[in-house]
Design a protein around this nucleic acid. Structure first.
Lengths: 366, 366
DNA sequence: ACGCCTGCGGTAAGCGCTTACCGCAACGAT
DNA sequence: ATCGTTGCGGTAAGCGCTTACCGCAGGCGT
């Protein structure tokens, strides 16, 4: 007698199905996996038994036998501290990561894979354990920026396929990123040439982020090109987060330093903090100071003025990472050491142009 | 001879470690799992071998042997269509889901569990397959709203522990939601009593969402309380998305129907669409029409005016769902059929109050 | 009519782990 | 010195699948 919720009893196995259908477990397996042409009659018997019993094959056993789990591990860094019931905010810093993950998921679905997700605390100094745990449960790893040091990546990449996002390729791992240099060049030129701004600063992200380095370099090159100098230095060091951008502006204003005509932020998050703080001090954007971002996260269109930024194909970044990883898993030979996706300039109001009037939710093509 | 990237060779097993350390596989296993007190000397030998080899135990084999995968499946619905490289937008509709998932992850981490995530397309009419696949790979399931019909939930809940979010409890599954009625009551009273508005409408969400039903009912009860009538009917039917809210307003304006003094939206997303469309028609919020939301998603604070809404403890919703599921998995007896979390009114500018001036990223306590 | 080929479907091995069970060495008690 | 006790650590079974291998029944050729 089955109670309606007897999942505590003993899970069904392929043997139960075989018995019920009056066939061997091999036949059940063959029907379920569609191999080796079982007779239609046998097939029907098995399918009926599966249906009646509500049988679902155990993934672990399958994986063990197949040497394939059909799972990819995704590890990212998060800033939250769990204080039991006081979760700190800056939720939207997660947006970028979440959209990438969604892309990974889309790619994975096409191949019947699922995503095993795990995040690592910023304060966690040895994420090795978590990464190893995920590695053991998956067929390959996608690592976001700032999760593991290069040596850590090399280490784990020796034992399992690894794709990094916005990182650096290693002999054993592939990196997927977007074309920071081209995007930044286009943006900087727009500010310098189209708008004619002559005092410009780059508000940096994490000092050790390859993305940040590439953006900074492209920015400075382009600025030098027109024969002026970029405003740089310690003051202009942010951390990819809104609070970081806000702090920079507060510092500058507090010390009575001048502001440049345009502030190029390392990412959209930072720009949000900057714009907010400027507004607090009644400094108008873009009339007094132009501000730009990088990423084109969804909120960028909700700001006032709407944010001029560089669009990265965020979701596609994730989908690509999966595709590359998949080819490594299925052993189709290692692909290129690095895949670079194109970016594009999105001109909205914050650089001084007329803002566009498309409702945020009707914009298409991500 | 090992090449630096020979993960193609043959994965390490516990036998390799045992050989290297000069002990039996049982000892290796015991050291790795810290049971049965192996001698410190043995322990050190094993640990050394593990370190040198970079061994990571196979999760599938462990799971098979342990009858525990340490994985929870999370399934949610998404609106995106994958058109190869044209991803449709409304990205932020994902926010709510993502924040919940983050909460689940936080809870899971505490117990050494990882998240297996999978989304189901809105247009997918038989998500059964995906859910079954996830079920096979995990120890229990967390199902977001709109993933499975009630009968579908009952079916799968017979074979595996299931917790639903914003759904309905079934004999075999537990539901976790926030207190819609209390939140809506508080909000409606604020509009009716504090502001004295006398014409109010509820812009609905999905007709079959329990959350929506509960909110609508509480709203109407509260409105009836003060002796006036709520504006209802087909016109006021949205879909939880910005585009849905926009469409409702456009319809009303297009048909030259009057607007109420206050529009209570089923969720924040809807409110975004409403506010945008009102702005397009130069109708001022809150001077001409007050608008409110529900959820308090992060963007709510970036709107102009900032959105008055009901805060749900979104992340905690997820963490709670995991905790409940965990207790079911570890067989500590089934908990309550439903867990309800408290909500709170967040008064900002869109209802007609003075907006608060806290920078969005400094707000704490989610 | 008999043997051979074809192919469905059953038996059993093995995937990499955990752990019950047991042998054995070393120690203390008598 | 002998036996009992203790506890470390090895052997092997088994977790639920997939699949190589093989037996066997039926159809065909001669």
């Amino acid at each position: 007698m089955e109670t309606p919720d007897d999942h505590g009893s003993r899970p069904l196995t392929i043997y139960d199905v075989a018995r019920r259908a009056g066939v061997s477990i091999a036949s059940v397996s063959r029907v379920l996996n569609g191999r080796n042409s079982p007779r239609p009659e046998t097939k029907e018997k098995v399918l009926a038994a599966v249906r009646e019993l509500g049988f679902v094959p155990d993934g672990a056993a399958r994986a063990l036998s197949n040497r394939l789990k059909e799972v990819v591990g995704v590890v990212f860094r998060h800033a939250n501290v769990q204080d039991d019931d006081a979760f700190s905010d800056e939720d939207e810093s997660l947006l970028f990561t979440d959209v990438i993950n969604r892309g990974v998921e889309l790619g994975a679905r096409n191949k019947g894979f699922d995503l095993l997700m795990s995040s690592v605390d910023v304060y966690d100094h040895s994420p090795q354990g978590r990464v190893a745990s995920i590695a053991g449960k998956s067929d390959g790893l996608i690592l976001h920026d700032q999760v593991l040091s290069t040596v850590g990546i090399v280490r784990v990449a020796q034992r399992t396929p690894v794709v990094t996002l916005a990182g650096t390729p290693t002999p054993a791992s592939v990196n997927v990123r977007s074309d920071n240099a081209a995007g930044m060049r286009e943006l900087t030129r727009h500010l310098l040439v189209d708008h004619g701004y002559r005092t410009v600063a780059y508000l940096a992200g994490h000092a050790d982020s390859p993305d940040n380095l590439a953006r900074a370099e492209a920015f400075e090159l382009e600025v030098a090109e027109v024969g002026i100098e970029a405003w740089t230095g310690e003051v202009w060091r942010g951390n990819y987060m809104a609070a970081g951008g806000a702090k920079v502006i507060k510092d500058i204003l507090g010390r009575n330093l001048p502001l440049p005509r345009a502030i190029v932020c390392a990412n959209d998050q930072t720009a949000i903090g900057v714009m907010y703080t400027l507004a607090q001090h009644h400094i108008r954007v873009p009339q007094d100071v132009a501000v730009t971002g990088f990423d084109d996260i969804p909120v960028a269109r909700h700001l006032h003025p709407q944010l001029t930024t560089i669009r990265q194909p965020i979701q596609k970044l994730g989908a690509t990472a999966f595709d590359v990883l998949y080819s490594m898993i299925s052993g189709e030979g290692r692909p290129e050491p690095e895949v670079v996706l194109p970016t594009s300039l999105v001109v909205r109001g914050s650089c001084g142009c007329q803002g566009e009037a498309v409702p945020p939710w009707e914009a298409s093509e991500r």
